[in-house]
Nucleic acid binder design. Structure first.
Lengths: 346, 346
DNA sequence: CTGAAAGCGCTAACAG
DNA sequence: CTGTTAGCGCTTTCAG
């Protein structure tokens, strides 16, 4: 029982069977040509010895690292969303024996073009993020979660969600529920998601002859700034008060709901509230909050899959483009108290 | 300008100066003995060529991987907390040129004792988590964020926060603000944090002659389960109603606040609310929510530092033990409306 | 003070 | 069908 501290190597297996390393290697990777019998024996011994291929050494040879770098937006608006997506990517990569590591929020830009990774996944690449820019210029293939905004070099592929229809569906839903004066609290983000959603809102409003009422909050924002924006919309001095409010993140929605309740407005009745990004906590509020479910876990998985594909297709072939479905979760904050007890929920 | 696709290697530098690889290596790592002059020239060329040491190859030799594995609890209660901690670890490790990768939530247990990492960080190790158990039994040194609960083999070190005093401070604060019947919504977690906090609450209550009123919710819980627990406490049929409620995560607190507001209770006035774990969104609610700030970023940094130290001290020396300070953020939900406009906040 | 050479664990030509 | 061999990029003895 070589249960000493050294790791079991191919050599150990080979020695044990009196064959050469390569035979063992071929048997294990299944790549080369070895007899079925030999293969069986190698596998048996490998198992017995508790052999674990050393991924580092394995990848050294192939000029690969067996790693994916993951970049999350510097000031993550929606923690839960990114965390889910991250774990989706980790899971998917793990199935291919690939490791996902996190990039610091603020890495040294010049260390970026020689990243020890076979590909990078950038979630929500933003126009004004120097790291994203450097990564996109670097030699490591880049897959982005959501397209790269115009003005930045394209990556090798992108995974995106069909935001516009979902936003329109949400707006339609609000209208059906009687909303006539919807308002939006929107962060000053310069990424594809923000541009797209904003566009969808604007055009929907135009089609419905409604003046889009958008309170833009800085990003990242101080609590006071968000609270002020929310207060302005909820109060709405100079105009008819908003009868529906859409916000982005857990935090902003929370601010909207609590502010509204404080001011005596009844969420789900005289004020509809919805979020552009779903998260677990939105189902916990009373009333529970209608939101667009971006299926972040699946989104993350697809990003990893795309990244893995980009590594293989190491030429300059077709860029990868994948669309992940999204869905609107209708909950009590827009359905009203009638259905409060049994909101439609996943 | 060798700006072709191949990465710049030590050999390139050596060739350029007509010296050998080892000289270049020594000059760059600063480990060996080379003349100051030679060193200067090597560094210069390295810089010029844009040399980046290949960490993978570098570590191959030393039987190190240059990587830290990070395990987050399978059903993260508090996304923001863990995400912050994770990035703290990533940042700290990056300074030492070490990469932090995420473990899948559900890895194959037998792949765990030969993890391609020099150490593992487990955040909030739980008694009932088989992965934690496997990791602790494995040969990769383990650092835990929060101690390993009794019943599991100890790791090589732990980073912890001084929860008990903070909980007591919070309870004292609530008492000062007039709370007489505090209640707690607590998840059925089997980790050190949960045990400690629960203990602190129990003993504080005992000292103050108060019957601890704890609603335990399953973990992970369905929204309905949490809502039910919250409703029970907020309503409190058979007893005097609670005048202060403590909850753990963003979600539960949100549920408490919105439920309370719906039932006509005024948070910060006739009902005090506080969270055991702070996060950005708690500052956004109206009123903003008092919470214990666990300084997760710093916590994560310390974990990484401890892990790095554990790798060096590869003997069975003293286990590492570090304590990260915590602080109570008093906000409007317990301070009341008087100070609502200017809550004490970081 | 510097160069040659031997590996780290694994893969993949190339022989046999 | 299997063994030999030459590396991947780097570190580190051991000679010179």
């Amino acid at each position: 029982m070589p249960s000493d501290d050294r790791a079991v190597t191919l050599q150990d297996i080979a020695d044990r069977l009196g064959v050469s390393r390569s035979t063992a290697s071929f048997a294990i990777t299944g790549r080369g040509r070895v007899s079925a019998e030999m293969r069986r024996r190698v596998l048996e011994v490998a198992d017995e010895l508790g052999y674990r291929p050393n991924t580092v050494a394995r990848n050294l040879r192939g000029a690969r690292t067996g790693m994916l770098a993951l970049r999350l937006p510097p000031h993550s608006t929606s923690m839960a969303y990114y965390m889910e997506a991250a774990f989706g990517a980790v899971e998917e990569a793990a199935q291919a024996g690939v490791i996902v590591f996190l990039l610091t929020t603020d890495p040294e830009v010049d260390s970026l073009d020689r990243l020890p990774a076979d590909a990078v996944i950038i979630l929500d690449p933003a126009l004004d993020d120097p790291v994203t820019r450097a990564l996109l210029r670097g030699r490591v293939p880049v897959i982005t979660g959501e397209p790269v905004p115009d003005g930045l070099p394209a990556g090798r592929g992108e995974v995106t969600s069909d935001h516009a229809p979902a936003v329109r569906e949400l707006l339609d839903h609000l209208a059906e529920r009687g909303a006539r004066r919807p308002a939006v609290v929107f962060p000053a983000l310069r990424n594809h998601w923000a541009f797209t959603v904003r566009d969808a809102i604007d055009s929907w409003c135009a089609e419905h002859g409604i003046r889009p009422r958008i309170a833009e909050v800085p990003h990242p924002a101080e609590p006071a700034e968000i609270q002020a924006a929310v207060a302005e919309i909820v109060l709405d001095d100079d105009d008819e008060p908003a009868d529906a409010i859409i916000a982005v993140s857990d935090g902003t929605v929370l601010s909207v709901v609590t502010s509204a309740q404080r001011l005596g407005r009844r969420v789900g009745e005289d004020l509809l509230v919805a979020s552009l990004v779903d998260s677990d906590v939105l189902a916990l509020a009373q009333p529970s909050i209608t939101a667009i479910d971006l299926h972040p876990r699946e989104f993350g998985r697809r990003c990893a899959r795309a990244a893995l594909a980009a590594i293989e297709a190491d030429a300059d072939g077709e860029p990868i483009h994948e669309v992940v479905p999204v869905s609107v979760q209708r909950r009590a904050s827009t359905l009203g108290p009638a259905t409060d007890g049994a909101p439609q929920d996943g």
